[in-house]
């Protein structure tokens, strides 16, 4: 198999960066921006068995069917300017009557028992409500449910693949990328979408040269910081969020920085 032709977008730098990866990893990284297999290897080195209990927990937690969430139907008396709307949430078709004022965030939280997405500000100023709609990260607090007709919505509850945590989720645990956890669903949805944006070659305000053709990007810490700045974390887990994303995006283990002295 001719790897050059398989991955025409790969630069020499990126090849160097990924030189310790297997060809399968490379392909997966090109397809998805990360390597599951390689990532699990990193985790098993770092976790020293402690994580095993978590992964066991993950299976138990996620083995429950991903809540074919119940729809709390409203009566017409409860709805002014009702709009009937159909869209997919985490792969399931939903059809419901909503008040025209109802946001996607409130619809998912109050009508579908999917309370993972959080209301931090309700005005587009914190990112806690971030969801992925048709592959793009958006703010569900500034999205009307009525405007989601025909769209495909992914919430934090739909990020894991069956019983497998998404590598971003696993990396968030490994790097302690949260404290209170309230912003975490939004951070993770944001980070997952960010991987695709980088793969798609999207630039940011801190990118040195923007007047170049698109190609998959390996993100520096500063690039990740800027691209994640729409997700406020009041506990201050930013360095750990950056570490988790960097590890997944690069496929290379990122060191934690703490030391004991004295």
């Amino acid at each position: 198999m001719n790897q050059e032709n398989e991955n025409p977008d790969l630069t020499e730098d990126e090849k160097k960066l990924f030189k310790d990866l297997m060809p399968e990893d490379l392909k997966e990284i090109m397809d998805t921006g990360f390597s599951r297999r390689h990532f699990l290897k990193l985790i098993s080195i770092a976790g020293t068995g402690v994580l095993a209990s978590h992964l066991l927990g993950a299976e138990q937690l996620l083995a429950r069917p991903l809540a074919q969430p119940s729809l709390n139907e409203l009566t017409t008396a409860q709805v002014e300017n009702g709009v009937r709307v159909s869209f997919k949430v985490n792969g399931f078709n939903k059809n419901l009557l909503v008040d025209s004022r109802m946001t996607l965030l409130d619809t998912v939280r109050e009508r579908m028992e999917l309370t993972g997405a959080k209301k931090g500000c309700d005005h587009g100023q914190c990112g806690a409500c971030t969801m992925i709609v048709d592959g793009k990260r958006i703010l569900s607090c500034l999205t009307l449910a009525a405007s989601c007709e025909g769209k495909s919505v992914t919430t934090i509850e739909g990020i894991a693949n069956g019983t497998d945590l998404h590598p971003i989720q696993a990396a968030f645990i490994k790097h302690d990328s949260f404290q209170c956890g309230y912003c975490t669903p939004g951070q993770i949805c944001s980070a997952v979408a960010l991987l695709a944006e980088a793969k798609n070659g999207e630039v940011s305000y801190v990118t040195d040269q923007v007047n170049v053709p698109k190609k998959p990007l390996q993100l520096s810490e500063n690039e990740i910081r800027e691209r994640m700045s729409g997700n406020i974390c009041r506990c201050g887990a930013y360095p750990n969020i950056v570490a988790a994303i960097r590890e997944v995006q690069s496929g290379k283990s990122v060191e934690q920085k703490w030391n004991f002295a004295g």
């Binding site: 978590h54 937690l61 939280r109 999917l114 934090i156 990020i159 945590l165 968030f172 302690d176 949260f178």
Partner: peptide
């Protein structure tokens, strides 16, 4: 020792319940 956060799994999957997350 640096044990991973016990509540981490709940938090990364959106299952940790905060005040208004009860059905």
């Amino acid at each position: 020792t640096p044990v991973d956060r016990i509540d981490g799994l709940l938090k990364v999957t959106g299952k940790a319940t905060y005040a208004t997350d009860y059905p």
